[in-house]
Amino acid sequence: MLTLYGESLPSRLLLGTALYPSPDILRRSVEASGSSLVTVSLRRESAREKSGQGFWTLIRELGVRVLPNTAGCRTAREAITTAQMAREVFDTPWIKLEVIANDDTLQPDVFGLVEAAQALAADGFKVFPYTTEDLSVAERLMAAGCEVLMPWGSPIGAGRGLMNPYALQMIRAYFPGVPLIIDAGLGAPSHAARAMEMGFDAVLLNTAIAKAGDPVTMADAFAKAVVAGRLAFEAGLMPERDMAQPSTPVAGTPFFDIGHAS
């Protein structure tokens, strides 16, 4: 069972709620994914349209826990204020902390991230930092009070999977007891399965499902991939070899000629 900040979650697939073709497809995709934690955001609300109110009703009807984000924030100060507003609106101390360095890569600004994480954790927030695979940044985030880390697989929306598996393997090995969630960049169920096979505790994705030809079916595919990957991790993968080794017994091979043995 996935446990984050003392709360148990039945699914290791965490879902974003943006970019879906319609609210109904979003609802059916969340249901098909089996996810019990979805990310949400805060945006400027027009008093005339009040478009956020209908979205909030939809999320409440889904009965899932929400993880508000600070998407789009460029400084620690913006992220802190956004987190404070999110805590009040969504009535949760959980916050997916994003401090973005630049628009082209949407890479985390790890300096602002650590600064904001320190302030928010001291203020009682349960911080889920969207970070890189950098070990020293991860250590700073842990020292700041983060009990969960969310390294990227590849840039947000890129769909390229795990671009730096070596470094991700390092961070997994370095923090064996810390919940690690691959956040961003997954494009295919096989990417999610690989992350889970490597021992990551969960994956968080959005675009791969929302922009699929059939998001509801893709949500089901990701759900199965996450379960398969986790089971494989728990079962223990066989070690890789450089050379072939026959699986069928050699002893008793018909027509075996000792002269051909090498």
Binding site: G16, E45, K50, G52, Q53, F55, T82, T207
Partner: peptide
Amino acid sequence: VEVVAPRQGG
């Protein structure tokens, strides 16, 4: 003044 409300997010 900023006035915000819930919205879709990733």
